[in-house]
Design a binder for these strands. Sequence first.
RNA 1: GUGGGUGUAGCUCAGAUUGGUUAGAGCGCCAGGUUGUGGCCCUGGAGGCCGUGGGUUCAAGUCCCAUUACCCACCCCA
Length: 414
Amino acid sequence: MPALTAIRGFKDILPKEADLWRLVEEKAREVVRRFDFSELRPPVMERAELFQRSLGATTDIVEKEMYTMEDRGGDLITLRPEATAGLVRALIEHNLHEGGRATKLFCLGPMFRYERPQKGRLRQFHQLDVEIFSDPGPHSDAEIIVLLHSFLSELGLPNLSIVINSLGCPECRPAYRKSLVDFLTGRLGSLCPDCQRRLGQNPLRILDCKVGSCQEQVKDAPAFPAFWCQDCQDHFKVVRESLEAQGLPFSLDERLVRGLDYYTRTAFEARSGDLGSQSAVAGGGRYDGLCKELGGPDIPAIGFAAGLERLIMLMAAQDSAAGRAGPDYYVAILAPEALGPAFRLAQALRSRGLSVAADWEAGGLKSRLKRADKAGAAKAIMIGPDELASGLATVRDLTTKGQAGLPLDKPELF
RNA sequence: GUGGGUGUAGCUCAGAUUGGUUAGAGCGCCAGGUUGUGGCCCUGGAGGCCGUGGGUUCAAGUCCCAUUACCCACCCCA
């Protein structure tokens, strides 16, 4: 019988890597706390309908990437492919937006999409999701971008850039969209097959197609900024000024487009040059229409999601994170009859809050010392026939090589 | 869903072009040199259905077919 393996696209986070994960998660929580966000933990499963309505029925995520199944009662349920929809649902369901001030929420956890795995892309992956509700103003946009920047830069990641754009609003986007479609329809033959398909589905995406011939065509396409309505222009201007005032480095990219239907106005992305093709480590934007779309009140919102595995990859690549410290003590026995005293000694140390690695297998002194060293312990405690006779355990400091005796009957000396 | 690459020791990989006794190295592990004092060095040892199934052949890790897993890229997305 073949051994069982993890399912495709689902990865074990091994101890060595888990240390890095904890570091990133702790940094996320710390930064988010400084910006006064509260944690909301929505369930991992929601009604399939929630995602169909929020993401757009024709998006790839909904069409072919969701883990949707019928439960035993016959309801269609889905493992969340992203966090925003669940957060919005919870916000509305519990009236968290009532109270006269902005509601600032974050969520950290696993998401699920049935995709073909590759570098920086798994079927179970993890995101930090940060959202501000009930504030339509541009300063929230700037604040959340500053938050993202703080998070990333405090992780010590080099080679990161923040790119922003405005996607317009329901007032002005349709006109631009039509103009773009009209322009590209005349050049349909010069577009790659993917873009020919996109023209009908999501024409804005053609703007950031990587195929050379498409980029050629797009060069002369109408530019979005010319179509922004006055409100969108003003909004975006304040966002930019606010970021500049705070000294945050960013660049503008008219081609930056979001994949999900619900985005409006400000869109932004954090990219790394050190990843493969999956260069976006975080992305987000404003989505003023979503709450209403989901049957709730008309609440404006802005937020982003950061992909943790991609951040971890960057962290691991630069090898900056120190691994977990070894135990304070390594207790080893040199003869089987030392087992009892060794147990008691280890327990005495542990009950004082010290970390103790123990080796219950009797062996030669040399090999025990070698193991203690390998375990990264600060000190080794050895008990053998001599120690049992003298009543003093040998405590050796592995860095200074200093040695001391510890009365076996009085471990409380620690 | 589409395309390419790779599966050999716990880990990283040679060996495949040109089929030929017992399939190798480094690291790690165990033991000894040093009979109770680690890291360096030396010596020895354990550890492999060569991803799986079929085929060609006197003979397959090596050639052919299928299959599966992983990786990378496209698509899409964080």
